[in-house]
């Protein structure tokens, strides 16, 4: 019994982190129909910012989080202007942008690898290796804090989308880009803003990831498939769906890891991605199979 509770708790804690990692990806897909394969490599960049801030100046990753988010959001603006704005009218847009973001992921990996080498890193504030104990069950502090911060950020995002003046056009563009444009929404500006927010969320996620997982530049390939499984299961573009999928799959992966073997734990996400793509491509909350 204790094993089951323990495994579930570890799964849930990781789910919180995965949720934030996937949220930005989902937002960008929803608004722009871009499957941003470079998202995990941008998370990686956020993780390096947190890592070096901690190592050089001893700044807590949770404090550096807004800075990482801001830097990455700025990067997002730049990337949008340089790369994605001109692709918006391309005939084979969705396929083109997948290849482009794939290439961008390689550029990011190459840059990070050149600057920081492929050494494995992890940020180690005190809480990262500490835990709360409740009877026989332990809750790792680092993952708990990361999960809580992550859910806090996602809630703020949801409130922003639902109620703010800028949330309306973002939601409208997500649901029907052409109609939004025809009703006077400047969809290009909305795209720019959502892309910046999405990449900013990658930066924030990176700060959390930096003390939850060990990382090195080429690890982003593994993350991309994990995150895609969340986003696809949740229904492309549905942030709520992504969060729910993050919890479901993380708990599932935790159980597979515990009962079958640690190496098979990640495989859970990959296989889930396959199964969902083929059985229910629109995911849990997708309106229709947008991707197919």
């Amino acid at each position: 019994m204790a094993d089951i509770v323990q495994t579930a708790i570890l799964g849930l804690a990781l789910g919180g982190v995965y949720a934030l990692m996937g949220a930005g990806l989902s937002l960008v897909f929803g608004v722009m129909r871009i499957v941003n394969l470079a998202h995990p490599s941008l998370i990686m960049a956020g993780a390096y910012i947190a890592y070096w801030a901690f190592r050089l100046a001893g700044v807590d990753p949770l404090l550096i989080l807004p800075v990482a988010a801001a830097i990455l959001a700025g990067t997002g603006v730049l990337l949008y202007k340089l790369v994605f704005e001109r692709e918006a009218r391309s005939a084979k847009y969705s396929e083109m942008t997948v290849l482009l973001t794939f290439a961008l992921a390689m550029v990011m990996e190459g840059l990070l690898g050149t600057v920081f080498t492929n050494t494995q890193r992890v940020t180690s504030p005190d809480y990262a290796t500490d835990a709360f104990f409740i009877a026989d069950v332990f809750i790792p502090k680092g993952q708990l804090y990361a999960g809580m911060v992550s859910l806090g950020i996602i809630s703020a995002l949801a409130l922003f989308l639902k109620h703010s003046r800028f949330g309306y056009p973002i939601r409208a563009t997500t649901q029907n880009r052409e109609a939004a444009e025809l009703l006077g929404v400047n969809v290009n500006l909305v795209s720019l803003a959502s892309f910046a927010i999405g990449v900013g969320l990658a930066g924030a996620a990176g700060a959390l990831v930096s003390f939850v997982f060990s990382f090195f530049p080429s690890k982003h390939w593994e993350w991309i498939v994990i995150l895609m499984s969340l986003v696809v299961l949740g229904g492309m573009g549905s942030i709520f769906g992504t969060v729910l999928a993050a919890f479901i799959l993380s708990v599932l992966a935790a159980f597979v890891g515990f009962y079958v073997g640690a190496v098979w734990s990640t495989l859970t996400f990959f296989v889930a991605l396959f199964v969902v793509l083929l059985v229910r491509p629109q995911g849990l909350f997708g309106e229709k199979p947008e991707l197919a």
Binding site: R171, A172, Q175, N176, E178, A179, A180, L182, E287
Partner: peptide, 10 residues
């Protein structure tokens, strides 16, 4: 536009 152009989830 064609196909109505509503925001289905709104």
């Amino acid at each position: 536009p064609q196909e109505r152009a509503l925001f289905p989830a709104m």
